[in-house]
């Protein structure tokens, strides 16, 4: 895999999961960003993180190419999905955290677009779940927009219960299937 060692300042802003500082790499102060008002109320006892990202950056040859679709997944915490409760479409603190990182990436790589997919588990009838998936996708889109992503870069689609990622007919399987996937593309929305 071809590595790009030149890391722009913008890239540093969105880096995640640095393990230890690398003296070879220039450390750039992250710009002060005023966080937009969240569209969904956070639970009262959970405060937003003081700083969104570690402000150091390390070029690890095992990391995906910055700006790639793999990189987006990596920056989202491995898989660009957020998960929901049964018949719910509100975003948990954890989901908002993942989505903030997605928004940061999208705000850096502005030539990218995303299709936000809403998914449901099989514990509901087909048409109701299509509507539920639409709500979930819209929750995610609205949050990303609140984080500065232009609405015309995001398109939503509901798959209802038609595209499960976990075939287990159990609570664990259903929980995995209640999600929204931010499906990033480099280029315009088709």
């Amino acid at each position: 895999m071809k590595r790009i060692l030149i890391a722009g300042a913008a890239l540093l802003v969105l880096s995640a999961c640095a393990t230890k500082p690398d003296p070879e790499v220039e450390v750039v102060e992250r710009p002060v960003v005023e966080e937009p008002r969240p569209v969904f109320e956070a639970p009262k006892d959970v405060l937003p993180p003081v700083a969104q990202q570690p402000d150091t950056f390390e070029v690890d040859p095992n990391l995906p190419t910055p700006g790639s679709i793999d990189d987006f997944a990596y920056q989202s915490g491995g898989e660009p999905r957020v998960f929901f409760g049964y018949d719910q479409y509100d975003l948990s603190a954890e989901a908002r955290d993942v989505l903030r990182r997605q928004a940061n990436w999208l705000n850096v790589y502005t030539n990218s677009t995303a299709i936000v997919e809403g998914h449901a588990d099989e514990r509901g009838t087909r048409e109701y779940n299509l509507a539920l998936g639409a709500r979930r996708a819209d929750s995610v889109k609205a949050f990303l927009v609140s984080q500065g992503v232009a609405p015309n870069r995001l398109r939503t689609i509901s798959y209802g219960k038609e595209r499960p990622i976990d075939g287990r007919p159990s609570a664990d399987g259903w929980a995995r299937n209640r999600n929204s996937l931010t499906n990033v593309r480099l280029g315009s929305i088709s």
Binding site: L130, A134, R135, A137, D138, A142, T156, S158
Partner: peptide
Amino acid sequence: LSMARRGNS
């Protein structure tokens, strides 16, 4: 039929 607009069906 149903139509979903801004998440609302």
